[in-house]
Design a protein around this nucleic acid. Structure first.
Length: 485
RNA sequence: GGCUCCUUGGUCAAGUGGUUAAGACACCGCCCUUUCACGGCGGCUACAGGGGUUCGAAUCCCCUAGGAGUCACCA
């Protein structure tokens, strides 16, 4: 049997990281098993739908490298892949259930239900639909439906016994039927609820493995009741733990947590995000992969297996993502790095005459997130305000007096350099230090401070001197001398 | 609150009755060094608690605690 998996988001916004991970695992499982990966849009709640969200989903999937074999915008033999376009396929199945007694029409209005629910809940009690409309004779119910009376169709959950399912990760999960509610299957607007649509579509689309978040763990026993009533074989279920912001809160865009595309915009590289997110809640077989932690998409496909999935929630740890990003950037080909860094350099240095190639060489191992690059290099465009305290460095054996002396010596020496290269600047300053009985650091540190205004910089005094050029260098040293005098 | 599920260091996690309880991130220290970064070396910190079962329990069972999910004409 060919494996068929599906990612089924609802178009309510951009792809968040929990969704991305679910999509990734679902994709990996299909690819690993030579199966098909399907994208289905679950838009049965027209009120929640956000315009443009569907396109965002397509785009994010592409950016993430999660190519689907079937989907709304790529076609396939099981379409349409947008649930609102399948509206007419659900009711017949619901009526089949009504016929067999596994479901029944309900005419209670929303207002009536709200009242009854409020009354039942008022004293802290529980509320479950009271099967009020189950007692309506079937003929009468059908007549009322035909007469155009508004109705919904509810699942008729048995009042005794248990409902259960087998999960590939969590094992046997069962719930007492009397704790389960008679959920609405078909809404008044004729569209199905998730509770019904997922069962119908997964079956009709031949989905063999349903991979989704644990939020569905407790309602899945009910879905199995539906499969049973329809005479269908349930798929293999694989529920996956959520990605958390901290130990008690789920990662969510409502709390301002970044989505996949936000991360991209902040200067994270796609492969680092995928690599990191893959390892959040899943671990490759140590026997096969040892301590390996860098995986390309192809390697993830090769390594992915259900055994490595974790049952408990994982906290999204930005520190580790940053580390992955930094590693990926350092591994990047230099030309690629230069190309990617250039727009970020421009944000701080546009219009300045700076050697980007040389700057990129210096920045390559120092870039953790591209978004931080402008801040890291903007001192080249403009000398920041700084406190003379930073001239003092214990290990370099510098203080304001030593620094002033160093700058006063360096000023004319630098001014005299004809060919202003890093090597020449370095040679001149080193010789100058030696000739005046100073340690190298006692010369280099003050010069670097004076020309950068920062305690730490990408590159040392000579690199910075070269980047900003001789004139700017002299100007900044003069300012330093002034400050220290 | 009912139901379902989860629980190894600050974080990600390996581990499926016998291990000195891996590794990674972060943090700290040392080395390298004109700062930072890179790189190298080292260190810190964990089986939620309590009962069993067993010669032996992170691993099996029970209880407690904590956390999560769910209880919609949302998905």
């Amino acid at each position: 049997m060919t494996v068929r998996t599906r990612f089924a988001p609802s178009p309510t916004g951009y792809l968040h990281l929990g969704g991305l991970r679910t999509a990734l695992y679902t994709y990996l499982y299909a690819r690993k098993n030579g199966g098909k990966f399907i994208l289905r849009i679950e838009d049965t709640d027209q009120e929640r739908e956000v315009p443009g969200a569907v396109e965002k989903i397509y785009n994010s999937m592409r950016l993430a490298g999660l190519e689907y074999d079937e989907g709304p915008d790529v076609g396939g033999d099981y379409g349409p892949y947008i649930q609102s376009q399948r509206k007419d396929t659900y009711l017949p199945f619901a009526m089949q259930l009504v016929e067999s007694g596994a479901a029944y029409p309900c005419f209670c209005s929303k207002e009536e239900l709200d009242e009854r629910r409020a009354a039942a809940t008022a004293d802290g009690g529980q509320w479950k639909y009271d099967k009020h409309c189950l007692s309506i004779p079937k003929e009468e119910a059908l007549r009322r439906m035909q007469n155009g009376e508004p109705f919904v169709i509810r699942q008729n959950i048995p009042t005794t016994g248990t409902a259960s399912f087998e999960d590939a990760l969590y094992g046997h999960v069962e719930a007492p039927c009397d704790t389960l509610d008679d959920n609405v299957l078909i809404k008044q607007d004729g569209l199905p609820t998730y509770n019904f649509a997922n069962v119908i579509d997964d079956h009709l689309m031949g989905i063999t493995h349903v991979m989704r978040g644990t939020e569905y763990l407790s309602s899945t026993p009910k879905y199995n009741l539906l499969y049973e009533a329809l005479g269908w074989t349930p798929p293999t279920y694989i529920h996956m733990s959520p990605v958390m912001k901290d130990s008690t809160r789920k990662l969510s865009k409502r709390h301002g947590d970044p989505g996949f595309e936000d991360l991209l915009a902040q200067g994270y590289v796609k492969d680092a995000i995928i690599n990191f997110i893959a390892l959040l809640g899943w671990c490759p077989d140590v026997k096969k992969y040892g301590e390996k932690e860098f995986f390309t998409m192809d390697e993830l496909i090769e390594a992915f297996d259900l055994n490595g999935l974790s049952k408990s929630p994982a906290i999204f740890n930005t520190e580790k993502l940053n580390w992955f990003n930094h590693e990926y950037i350092m591994k990047m080909d230099f030309e690629d790095y230069l190309a990617m860094a250039t727009p970020w350099f421009d944000k701080a240095l546009a219009g300045k005459n700076i050697d980007y190639r040389r700057l990129a060489e210096l920045m390559h191992t120092r870039t953790e997130i591209f978004g931080n690059v402008p801040e890291q290099v903007k001192f080249l465009a403009e000398l920041p305000e700084y406190d003379i305290d930073i001239y003092t460095h214990k290990k370099m054996k510098t203080n304001p007096e030593v620094s002033l002396k160093a700058l006063q010596l360096a000023r004319p020496a630098i001014a005299a350099i004809e060919n202003f290269t890093e090597d020449n600047v370095k040679e001149v300053l080193m010789n100058l230090a030696a000739a005046n009985d100073m340690k190298t650091g006692q010369m280099m540190w003050p010069v670097r401070i004076a020309i950068s205004g920062l305690a730490s910089t990408p590159g040392g005094a000579t690199e910075i001197a070269y980047l900003i050029g001789k004139e700017e260098c002299l100007r900044r040293i003069d300012l330093g001398i002034e400050k220290l005098s």
